[in-house]
Amino acid sequence: MLEITDLRAGYGGTEVLRGLTLSVGKGEIVAVLGSNGVGKTTLNKVLSGVQPARSGAIRFNGQDIFGASAKTVVSAGLIHVPEGRKIFPNLTILENLELGGYCRPKSARRTNLDKVFSIFPRLKERTTQLAGTMSGGEQQMLAIGRGLMGEPKLLILDEPSLGLSPLLVEEMFTLIRRLSDDGLPIMLVEQNVVQSLELASRAYILENGTVTISGDAAKLKDDPELRRAYLGL
């Protein structure tokens, strides 16, 4: 579905991604893990076309999207739900969702809205509320709902559990499982290592802009190197 080969990117003289290679297949949840500053957010920005890469290759669904504009990437169905949600605070919930389908034909909007409302009934109750006045958890749901309006073929979720209460984190991970069960491939970018590994089929651990450990999520959970580095065990 998504294949990234030897990707390099950075800001000014600083190289952030140093030859990163990873892939996400159909029906998978792939976790991309790592602590702050290893290049996770830069990777997502490069993938979504808002940050230029220096070299490497990105193929998505058979299409070369290296250097493509954000609009092309979204139209191709690679949808990125960013860290910090980045919803439109001055727009209503309904308007936020409508703009999620900005690149899709208007005729599809009604059915997509119904789909999102069936996943997030709470959004349906409050379509006219300004998005900026919602709680953090609700904003995260709106951000994912907005992403789903773009008819994703693959969804990148950047830190969906960030800033949520443990109960809401649990709810968020259940939701991600549900989306995946419906056939949507997901690239889950997280700092929450334990829960992400439970959810994902495969995982990549980033350090300093490249993949240091990768493999089957269930096996990685018991990897002594990972347990030492991330779990302090």
């Binding site: 808002v50 954000a70 979204v74 739900v81 980045k86 919803i87 439109f88 001055n90 690149c103 773009g150």
Partner: peptide, 11 residues
Amino acid sequence: KEKLGASLVGI
């Protein structure tokens, strides 16, 4: 209000 968010929905 939200340039990055707008880019990410394809605006």
